[in-house]
Design a protein around this nucleic acid. Structure first.
Lengths: 228, 228
DNA sequence: AATGGACCAATCATCCTACAACTTTCATAG
DNA sequence: CTATGAAAGTTGTAGGATGATTGGTCCATT
C-alpha cells in the first residue's frame, strides 16, 4: 500500500475540522470558540499550526479574533462572505439588474414547479404584506415583502438560484429599506403582488416573468428618483 | 489626527501587501514567489507572522504552497476561486438554469444598449461560428460559439453580470464541450444565432430574450439525452 | 450608592529557535 | 553518459517567551 502525497497538511486538517464544527452548528454564530490553549490540546497540534488554521478562517470571514477577548464565529458560509464583500463594491443598479435576471427566471420556474403547499404559503405571505401595509408598519412591510419574494424563489426549486438570490437581496437590503422608508407617501401596489401570485397559481410562466419585470422597473424608478 | 481602531494587525498588513503584489501582476500567476526567508526581510516581520499571512491567502485560493519546493501564485481573484469551487459541487441543470437567467437578461439589456461597434463585433463572431461549422471543426466551433455569447453579455454593459456569466460558463464548459463533441450529427442551428443577432440589431429586447430561451432549451434537451 | 482608578487574569499577537520533511541541485562514482 | 547520493534550499511543525489588548474585580473617593 503506497501512501502518495494524499496527506493533507496538519493545518488543512485543522481547518477542515473547524469548518465542520461551524457548519454543523457545534460552534454557533456569534459565540466564542475555546481559547487557543484548549484547542491546541483538542486537536493535538502546536500553537503555530492552530494559529495558521484559525488565521485562514479569519481571512475567509468565518471567524473573527479580538486580542485579549477571544475568537468568535462570524458566519457559516465562506462564499457568502466573499460574495457580499464583492457586491459591496459593485454599483447598486448593476446588482439590481442581476437580481432582476435571477428573480424573473425564479418566478417563471416557480410558476411551472410550485406545489399546492407552496402556493398557499405564498398566499399567506401576500396577506401578511397587505396587513403590514394597512397597519402602516413600513418596517414590517419590507420584511414581509422580502419574505414573499424569497418564497417565490424557493418554489423554483433550484438551490443555486436561491442562494445567489439571497446574496443579491442581502446586498440590496439597505437600498430596499431606503426606498420603502423614505417615500413620502406609503403607497402599496397590491396589484403587483397579486399579479405575480395569480400567474404562479395559474402556472403562467410568461406572466410571472412580466410581473417581476414590472416590480423591478417600479423599484428602479423610485431608487433613481432618490439619488438626485 | 485621531487613530481609531483602524490599526490593522501585522498579519493583515502583510496579507494586503501580498494581495496588491498579486493583483498588480508583480507576482505573475504560475510563478514562484520569493522564499519565506526573503519575504521575512522584505516585510520585516517574523516567520510566524509571514506564514499566517501566506496561509490565509492559500486558503483563499490565491497562493499554493508545496513543501520543499516553494509557493506559487494560483489565481488573482478570490471570488473566482470560491465561486468555482462552489459551482463544482452544484447540479449541472441548476447551474444551467442560472445561466439561462443571466443570459436572458444580458441579451435583453444588450438589445437596448449595444453600440454599433459591438453589433459589428457580434456579426463577425457569428461569421466565425458559421465558418467553423462549415469546416466541421467542432472544437473551434465551441470556442467561437462561447465567444459570441460572451460578447452579447459584454454588450449588456454590466460588469457584475458579465463576471457571473463567465463563472457560469467556466463551470459548464465541460458539459458544453461534451454536448457539442458527442452528438453523432454535427447540426449547426444557424438560425438561432441569427435570431439573437437580429433581435439585438433591431434592439428588440423581448425577441432577444426569447431566442436565448430557445437556445438554452435546445441545449438542455441535448444534455438530458446524453445523461442516459 | 455611584464613580473612577489601580490592578489582575485571560487571551490573542508577535517573535524566536530548533528540527523535520520534502524538493531541487549538483558533484561524483560507475 | 547515467545513476547515486550527499548537500543545500524550502516549507511544515513544535515549543517557549514576551508584548498588547480586553474584561473584570476590588477599593478608595466622592
Amino acid at each position: 500500500m503506497i501512501r502518495k502525497t494524499n496527506r493533507l497538511s496538519l493545518v488543512e486538517q485543522v481547518v477542515q475540522q473547524i469548518e465542520q464544527l461551524i457548519e454543523h452548528k457545534q460552534w454557533a454564530v456569534g459565540e466564542k470558540i475555546p481559547p487557543e490553549a484548549q484547542l491546541m490540546e483538542q486537536f493535538d497540534v502546536s500553537r503555530n499550526t492552530l494559529r495558521e488554521a484559525i488565521r485562514s478562517l479569519v481571512h475567509a470571514g468565518l471567524l473573527e479574533t479580538k486580542q485579549g477577548s477571544g475568537t468568535t464565529v462570524r458566519s457559516t458560509n465562506a462564499l457568502e462572505v466573499a460574495f457580499t464583500r464583492h457586491l459591496e463594491r459593485t454599483n447598486v443598479f448593476e446588482t439590481l439588474e442581476v437580481r432582476s435576471a435571477l428573480e424573473q427566471e425564479g418566478a417563471a420556474l416557480a410558476a411551472r414547479r410550485r406545489t399546492d403547499e407552496q402556493l398557499s404559503e405564498l398566499k399567506e405571505a401576500v396577506d401578511n404584506c397587505v396587513r403590514a401595509a394597512e397597519a402602516r408598519d413600513r418596517l414590517k412591510f419590507v420584511q414581509k415583502d422580502l419574505h414573499f419574494h424569497t418564497l417565490v424563489i424557493q418554489a423554483a426549486n433550484n438551490s443555486l438560484l436561491l442562494e445567489m438570490y439571497e446574496h443579491m437581496i442581502e446586498a440590496l437590503s439597505s437600498s430596499i429599506f431606503d426606498v420603502t422608508m423614505s417615500s413620502e407617501t406609503f403607497d402599496y401596489d397590491e396589484e403587483i403582488h397579486n399579479e405575480l401570485l395569480t400567474a404562479i397559481e395559474q402556472q403562467d410562466a410568461v406572466r410571472a416573468r412580466q410581473s417581476v419585470q414590472q416590480y423591478i422597473a417600479l423599484f428602479t424608478k423610485r431608487l433613481k428618483k432618490m439619488n438626485i
